[in-house]
Each structure stands twice: as structure tokens, then as C-alpha cells.
Amino acid sequence: MPWRAMEPDHLPGVRGIADRVHLNYPEDEAVFSERLELYPEGCFVLERAPDGLAGYIISHPWHFKKPPALNVLLGAVAEPASTYYIHDIALLPEARSNGSASEAVLKLVRHAKKARFPNLSLVAVNNSVKFWEGHAFRTLDDADLNEKLASYDARAKYMVLELT
């Protein structure tokens, strides 16, 4: 199942995946729609034939150590940006354990390097820290981030991959 560019008609399917995968982190479809509109080159879907989507990626340039709060519209992509932010990589349970998530991470790393970002960053939720650590991301502990991370939950971690 290859990753391909997200299109506006994918948004209901993206929302359906988010509703299944991120029960404790709900976001309005407007958040997904805005990210796609603002930075389409960072949005992808994983199709599952013949009945729809199996996963999605949403990512965009942003400000380092300033992750957007959960379920908040951006208004604009950061300029200048100091990180390539992974808003979400979500896969349905039946689409996991086949390398698709790792392929998504590599796709985003290549994009960030090509665009000359100094790093990638994200907020890890749903006990995903080990997955991200397996891709060389590290947790960044910073008291100033606590307020932003609180919109997710007490276990959310801000993680960074430095690009050299």
C-alpha cells in the first residue's frame, strides 16, 4: 500500500481514521482541512483497496518548541519556520506492523532534509514514544512546553530528530 498525496475528498476518511485511532485526542475536520490547504506537500494518505483509507500523514513547517495545541487552527504556516512538524501519522490497527509507519517517517525525513529544515519535531501520544525513539527521535524535556502539551494529556512528549 503506497503513500500518496492527500486530496480534499480524502478528508472524511482521514477524520474517520482519526476518530478510531485518537479517541482521546479529538480534532475537528477543519483542522485536517486547513493543514491540507496550507501545506499539501506534507499531507498523504495510505489507501487500502478497494474500500478506502488505511492511514494518513499530516505535517508542515512550524516553530521549534512551540507545538500547536490540540484541535487549533494555524491560520498560516510558520515563516520563517524552525522545524518540520509532524502533526500526525495515523494508521488503522489492521494496517500496522507492515512497515508503512516507518516508510512514512522516512518520507518526512527526506522531505525535511531536502527543504533544509534543521530538525523534525512532534508530540508523541498513544504510547508512541518507543516507536519514535526507534527512528532516532529523542524526548525534549522543557518546562516551557508543559502548557502546550497539557492540551494533549499528561503523558504527551515533545520529541525531536536533529538533521545534520
Rank of each mutant, 00 (worst) to 15 (best):
residue 138 R to G: 10
residue 91 L to S: 01
residue 149 L to N: 13
residue 78 A to D: 12
residue 131 F to T: 14
residue 86 I to R: 00
residue 133 E to K: 10
residue 132 W to S: 04
residue 93 P to S: 13
residue 130 K to T: 12
residue 89 I to A: 02
residue 140 L to G: 03
residue 118 P to E: 13
residue 81 A to E: 12
residue 92 L to H: 03
residue 156 A to L: 07
residue 123 V to C: 10
residue 140 L to F: 13
residue 125 V to R: 05
residue 103 E to C: 03
residue 151 S to L: 11
residue 150 A to I: 11
residue 134 G to V: 05
residue 130 K to Y: 10
residue 77 V to H: 02
residue 149 L to Q: 12
residue 134 G to C: 11
residue 116 R to G: 07
residue 101 A to W: 03
residue 100 S to A: 09
residue 154 A to N: 11
residue 86 I to T: 05
residue 89 I to R: 01
residue 144 D to W: 15
residue 104 A to K: 01
residue 124 A to P: 14
residue 119 N to E: 11
residue 103 E to Y: 01
residue 79 E to I: 01
residue 93 P to T: 05
residue 97 S to K: 13
residue 141 D to R: 15
residue 150 A to C: 08
residue 115 A to V: 10
residue 132 W to H: 06
residue 79 E to Q: 07
residue 131 F to R: 12
residue 138 R to P: 04
residue 73 L to R: 04
residue 151 S to W: 11
residue 76 A to Q: 15
residue 79 E to N: 11
residue 74 L to K: 03
residue 82 S to E: 10
residue 152 Y to K: 06
residue 118 P to L: 07
residue 119 N to P: 00
residue 81 A to M: 06
residue 96 R to S: 08
residue 145 L to I: 08
residue 100 S to K: 01
residue 132 W to K: 04
residue 122 L to H: 13
residue 74 L to I: 00
residue 130 K to N: 13
residue 127 N to F: 06
residue 76 A to S: 11
residue 99 G to I: 12
residue 104 A to S: 06
residue 125 V to F: 04
residue 153 D to R: 08
residue 139 T to G: 06
residue 147 E to T: 12
residue 112 A to W: 03
residue 98 N to Y: 03
residue 94 E to A: 09
residue 112 A to K: 01
residue 151 S to H: 13
residue 104 A to D: 04
residue 125 V to A: 04
residue 141 D to Q: 06
residue 108 L to C: 02
residue 101 A to D: 04
residue 73 L to K: 04
residue 117 F to A: 05
residue 76 A to I: 00
residue 118 P to G: 13
residue 111 H to Q: 08
residue 83 T to K: 00
residue 96 R to N: 03
residue 148 K to M: 15
residue 81 A to R: 00
residue 76 A to H: 08
residue 138 R to K: 14
residue 86 I to M: 09
residue 137 F to S: 13
residue 132 W to I: 03
residue 116 R to Y: 06
residue 92 L to Q: 03
residue 132 W to F: 13
residue 117 F to P: 00
residue 73 L to Y: 05
residue 130 K to Q: 12
residue 106 L to R: 15
residue 120 L to D: 07
residue 135 H to Y: 11
residue 77 V to F: 03
residue 104 A to L: 04
residue 81 A to K: 00
residue 101 A to H: 03
residue 136 A to S: 07
residue 90 A to Q: 02
residue 106 L to E: 07
residue 113 K to N: 08
residue 121 S to D: 10
residue 80 P to S: 04
residue 103 E to V: 01
residue 115 A to K: 12
residue 107 K to V: 01
residue 82 S to P: 03
residue 123 V to Y: 12
residue 108 L to W: 05
residue 139 T to V: 14
residue 152 Y to G: 09
residue 152 Y to S: 12
residue 98 N to K: 07
residue 77 V to A: 09
residue 151 S to V: 12
